[in-house]
Computed example of a mutant assay.
Amino acid sequence: MPAYGFEAYKGEDGVAYLRQNPRQVNVIREIVNRLLAEDTPETPAEIADELNSRKEPTPRGTRPSKRITDSGREYKWTAAGIRKMLKSEALLGWKMESRPVLGKKYYESVPVIDKTGKKIRMAEPIFTDEEWERLQAHLSERSFLVSSPTNATPFLDVILCGYCKGKMRMHVSRRETKNGRKEYPKFRCVSPRLVGGRTRYGCEDQVSWDPGRLLVALEHRFLEEFGDTEAEERIYVVGEDHETRMREIEQFVPVIMADMEPGRRYGTALMRPRAEKMLDKLNAEYEALSKAPTGDRWEYRSLGKTWRQHWKTARLPELEKLMRKNGVQFLCYPESFELFIPERLKV
């Protein structure tokens, strides 16, 4: 079976070949663009949720097994599935094979090597070498084991260290006292740095804050400035190519106008108004298509509430996600805070 992003076809010589599947390539490109967005990149989990919400077929869902179909179940996009797909060199058009992993019970997909020691390319690559290296570097930076934290950090991607712009995590110190165990929670900068050949966490300026004071300050500063502003959600829109339809209209119009000459199809008093209506409709459609955006883009959709209303009704994970997607950052210094808001929200 061809890898996701490719499809088999039969050439004029009767031999089967591989080529890119335009729809699937667009989905792959969309995922990568959202992962590598410079302002507010999304996580694989967030992208998977959005793809599932719009019923985008998964790599397995494009060719479901009879057992799955009969059971009524559906394949779902997952963060792990997206990472696995983007790490596969099949996206570069190489011929792949499955090999057992030594000492394991599973297989891995690797490129086939010919007798000369070179990989065999079966189709045009979806990514250039530079794009592939950047993507793999991004995925490698975020390859780590995640354990369930006992101290969940609120607003993890919103509250940042003002000096190094690194994340601030909730750290809880526990001490045994005569009256029992006491906890001392603090928000701390956790940016890694090398000290004497060993890794230490926290930048040199080592910012730390009491959680209660920090969260109250975030709420007060943000709502004071933007509480009455309408809250919006940023969504990724896959662009459409209107050139084909515009070329069709350009070809239709001269034909219709020629048919309006006396003795032709629309050359009578009865048929001419019908032709004029057709021309008006085609002209309006052409004008609309010429002004419509074509490339992939981010758009903002109103949530029908102000930020203050949303703050009171939304759950914390939803509020965190919305603020992060809007590019909101709350920078912490030893004696002060700084609220960073993108220019778009300031309008």
Rank of each mutant, 00 (worst) to 15 (best):
M1H: 06
E7R: 10
Y9S: 12
G11H: 04
V25C: 07
N33C: 11
N33G: 14
A37I: 12
P44V: 01
E50L: 09
T69L: 15
D70H: 11
W77Q: 05
T78N: 04
K87G: 08
K95E: 13
R99Y: 01
V101L: 11
Y106N: 14
Y107C: 12
T116P: 07
G117D: 10
E131S: 08
L135M: 05
A152I: 12
P154V: 08
L156R: 15
D157P: 12
I159N: 01
C164I: 01
H171N: 14
S173E: 04
R174Q: 08
N179R: 15
R181C: 07
K182S: 10
Y184V: 03
P192W: 07
L194V: 08
R200A: 12
D205E: 07
R213K: 12
V216C: 11
E232Y: 10
I249E: 02
V255Y: 00
R264G: 02
A269F: 10
R274Q: 12
R274H: 12
A275S: 04
A284R: 15
T294F: 05
Y300N: 05
R301Y: 06
T306A: 02
L316R: 10
E318R: 04
E320K: 12
N326T: 06
L331Q: 06
C332T: 00
L339M: 13
E343I: 13
